[in-house]
Design a binder for these strands. Sequence first.
DNA 1: GTCAACAAAAATCTCGATATTTTTTTAAAG
DNA 2: CTTTAAAAAAATATCGAGATTTTTGTTGAC
Lengths: 248, 248
Amino acid sequence: METVSDRAGEEIEFHGKGGKTLVEGAYATLRREILEGAFEPGAKLRTEELRARYNISGSTMREALTRLLGEALVTSEGQRGFRVAPASLEDFRDLTEVRKLIETEALRQAIAHGDEAWESQIVASFYRLSKVEERLAEDPAHAISEFEERNREFHRALIAACPSRWLHHFIGLLFQQSERYRRMSMAKRTIPRDVHAEHKAIFDAVIARDADLACKLTADHIERTLTVLRVALEPQAEPRRSKTKINS
Amino acid sequence: METVSDRAGEEIEFHGKGGKTLVEGAYATLRREILEGAFEPGAKLRTEELRARYNISGSTMREALTRLLGEALVTSEGQRGFRVAPASLEDFRDLTEVRKLIETEALRQAIAHGDEAWESQIVASFYRLSKVEERLAEDPAHAISEFEERNREFHRALIAACPSRWLHHFIGLLFQQSERYRRMSMAKRTIPRDVHAEHKAIFDAVIARDADLACKLTADHIERTLTVLRVALEPQAEPRRSKTKINS
DNA sequence: GTCAACAAAAATCTCGATATTTTTTTAAAG
DNA sequence: CTTTAAAAAAATATCGAGATTTTTGTTGAC
């Protein structure tokens, strides 16, 4: 089992999936670290540095970085290497709008096509999500990653019956992008928010097969994270900066 | 200037862009070759073979392949290499539906936001497209690549005023995916089709800022290529195959 | 002091060879 | 003749070093 050195030189595991290739391991680990904010948006990603961090060779590291390029989590420019994808309120606003458009469409199709197996998967994932939401109030720092996982799983279950592969693909990309901002939003939590109540409302509407209501609630739900982050950023709005880049 | 060996061992140019890296060169060339159908959907892409074809090393070739992975033009599985992304009527049907959803939304936003500069770019690209459409009737085989380029440019110009980066990104991916099918559809041309008239109608509606009409026409325009390909495939529908993979 | 040219350092990109895994072939057994 | 097992071949994945480009630092002229 491979290991990688942590920030100060500790060693953390390479996410013990046996059959995987080194590229896939480095890719998965770096992706998570970017999403969790271990690397600042826009930060330089030196191959030599990362190569050493993950104990792999340069070319292998480049291949892992190139994968993240395809998910828009890193950028690469000509002859001057890779960077973490920049983050901005404007980007998140855009992301949110497109997500509303695509995810509500997928939800509508899922409600139209879904069978009992689909429903039961929603029930199960909603239950699992609810459990971790309780824990989130007590121990936010520790439960947040598990919350993210179950939140993703719940949202995936909702639209699982949508037959469009391309909608699923795009939603996956957008959801992942949102995760980065969502974590920032939770870190700077300013507005009190009953996420569980939102999920419950969506859950009820979907099980009741009320497509219009479910889509409306989902759109509001997606929008709300943007509002929270916007409020968290606006008060300290320095008039000098116009583009409001986000630096964690 | 690098060269690559053609099918029978000839040498063709590496798309003479000077400042590019070898990875970018191989990536761009292979992408075009896949889109043009030089490699069959689902075909194995042996690194050794490609490496020799483009005169680059294995790791560099892998990096180029990984880029195409992010654009869903190739697939990669665990420890068994890369393949050209499969193509199927079902995939094209899905692609078409999603494209209609996203591209009409972008067009609506473009019409709402567009200024005079936007309009003039549309006029220019429509003119350029019209010119090559004339040539297309006489000399299809030779004009097709130029038609594809100008067609892409026209469609891009139409939605250029849409402010959403993510819509642009997805539309770019979907348009590229469609290109592969579009070329198949043109090769097996069965139904007579006045593409120029379709473009003209869209052009007029957009310039008149009639969003509803423009979106309707665009959706029909996108749908029509699907219909053409469907008709071209259905007559020879062998009852044995259920999934109707497309093998050029 | 600022700018430019040049040199040194650092980083990126590329290569060719090796280790590992999968696939094919061959041989043996039931 | 089919199935199983072992060996050989082919293909993938990985490495570490070298070539190329960008960035940083220094010197000298104006």
